[in-house]
Design a protein around this nucleic acid. Structure first.
Lengths: 296, 296
DNA sequence: TAAAAATACTCCATAGGTATTTTAT
DNA sequence: ATAAAATACCTATGGAGTATTTTTA
């Protein structure tokens, strides 16, 4: 059986007339009769009752007509879908987000993706550290990482999309919160709330380095998520230095102040080389979105 | 595009090897390469990445593989289904049941149909009078009638399956209920509960005729359904004569007694000539069921 | 260099065309 | 008598085969 048989049968069933159906199919009537007959022979079932005056569907023909139509539309759909996938307009993409950017990026990106690539299913996974994302990219668990460089692996494609300044997070009643700006040196003696150490959080390493440059080694308390970090500060358990985009996360009792020093941290998109069409489209869209997006 | 393209592509995708796939398809390797290439050209999409060492699916190929497999199984299913319909093992049949037989036949027939023709969807419609069923048969609203003859239309096929005796339905406290048997003449003076008149209920006509033969014209109260009829008798609103199969319907306060007279009524199967295969199968099954079934 | 896909070509099976017959109204 | 499907026969497209080349690991 071939799709030709189904197309021909559907045409005859719809026209109830071999001659008109043949015309519609742009073939002559005899080969149409033959093909339909061939189909019936293969099925072992009579689909049509024909006299010279009337062509009618048998009950089996009625049923087969439904199924044949369904198959033909599914074939069309399959072709259209394959084209969409090839053009990167349909598919699934897993995206990792660095902790400090999760609260700004998660809503921004999911909105942008829904608007720009509606048939792409995006799986956004937040609060992932740079080395975690690197491993997941290489393992194929995520297709795109939005993270804080540097990335160790040489094969991955890295593209920096933002450069942010660090800002201080202070409890609202804190004496330093009275000033317009805060100097890193002012934080000597304070407890610093930070991300997990062991060299896994790029932001944490940068903060510790900034303190060392200002002449002190900070006492630190470690938390796993950005929201916990700001909550800890709000609770008066310490102060923190975070990328400015964290300011999108507002928690009562915590306030942000710019630093006197110019301490900067990058945000980069990372993906495997030769990305699939969907991933390429998503990378391009995310890149555009993050560059257009005004971020304080 | 033809099913051949789908079959070939699925084979290559499953083997990841043109040579082995060709072997499986019992064709040579070059035409297989050509057909797959042709498919890709028609879709405008690359489905496979091939080097001489490795054949792999592209994302679009992955998606198209799912769809192609689905289409191929649907084609198989469509063929199998058409054969079932042609053999009368699959389909939908609407069956009308006469009021007096509804309560016995509805459960019996639906059980028999589910056991004997599990893929046939039967629509059992009870409490239909003979002329109603006749009209519905001719209009194609039902395919089989289980009714009380006679049938007026000459073209319909009628086959009598049972001959039942009429029995009396009496309120439990009624004086006549004291006797083993009841004579029709004893009912003179009683109110008779019966089915709608105007010559539409065959059982009703038979009852009135029996009374006339016994020398009286009964006073009647009319109800639409058999369950209502027996309930009316139980409530002491009158007595009734019904086919013996109604005795399957037991309602507190009403009791059945055989008649002294031998008043009989037939039960027949009626369908249009040249029934479709399903209808023919259902008719045969129903006929067997009603003849096997012991009915008091 | 060896395994496998692509290319080049050849052939024949069969889809499709033309002419005619059959059939049912 | 006529419209329409079936049959008979022919043609030619293209699917499949054979031989060979190309490619890459």
């Amino acid at each position: 059986m071939e799709l030709r048989h189904l197309r021909y049968f559907v045409a005859v069933a719809e026209e109830c007339h071999f001659g008109r159906a043949a015309e519609r199919l742009h073939i002559a009537q005899p080969p149409l009769s033959q093909q339909v007959k061939q189909l019936e022979a293969e099925l072992g079932v009579q689909l049509l009752t024909r006299t010279t005056r009337r062509v009618e569907l048998t009950p089996a023909g009625e049923r087969f007509l439904e199924r044949a139509r369904d198959v033909l539309t599914r074939v069309e759909d399959a072709a259209a879908e394959a084209r969409l996938v090839a053009d990167g307009l349909d598919g699934r993409v897993a995206i990792g987000l660095t902790g400090s950017a999760t609260y700004e990026l998660l809503p921004t990106l999911s909105r942008a993706l829904r608007a720009g690539l509606p048939d792409v299913e995006a799986d956004l996974r937040g609060e992932l550290l740079t080395p975690e994302q690197e491993a997941m990219l290489l393992a194929g668990e995520i297709d795109l990482g939005v993270l804080r460089p540097p990335v160790v692996d040489e094969t991955l494609v890295v593209r920096t999309v933002r450069r942010e300044r660090l800002v201080a997070v202070l409890p609202e009643g804190h004496p330093l919160a009275a000033a317009e700006r805060v100097s890193v040196a002012d934080l000597a003696g304070e407890t610093l709330v930070g991300y997990p150490a062991h060299g896994r959080s790029v932001v944490h390493l940068l903060v510790v380095e900034a303190c060392r440059a200002a002449g002190f080694v900070p006492r630190t308390v470690e938390v796993g998520e950005t929201s916990t970090l700001v909550s800890f500060v709000a609770a008066g358990l310490g102060v923190a230095l975070v990328p400015e985009s964290v300011q999108h996360l507002r928690i009562t009792g915590a306030t942000y102040r710019p630093l006197v020093e110019d301490v900067r941290v990058d945000l980069a998109l990372v993906h495997r080389p030769d990305p699939s069409p969907v991933v390429a489209n998503v990378v391009a869209l995310v890149e555009r979105t993050l560059q257009d997006e005004p971020h304080d």
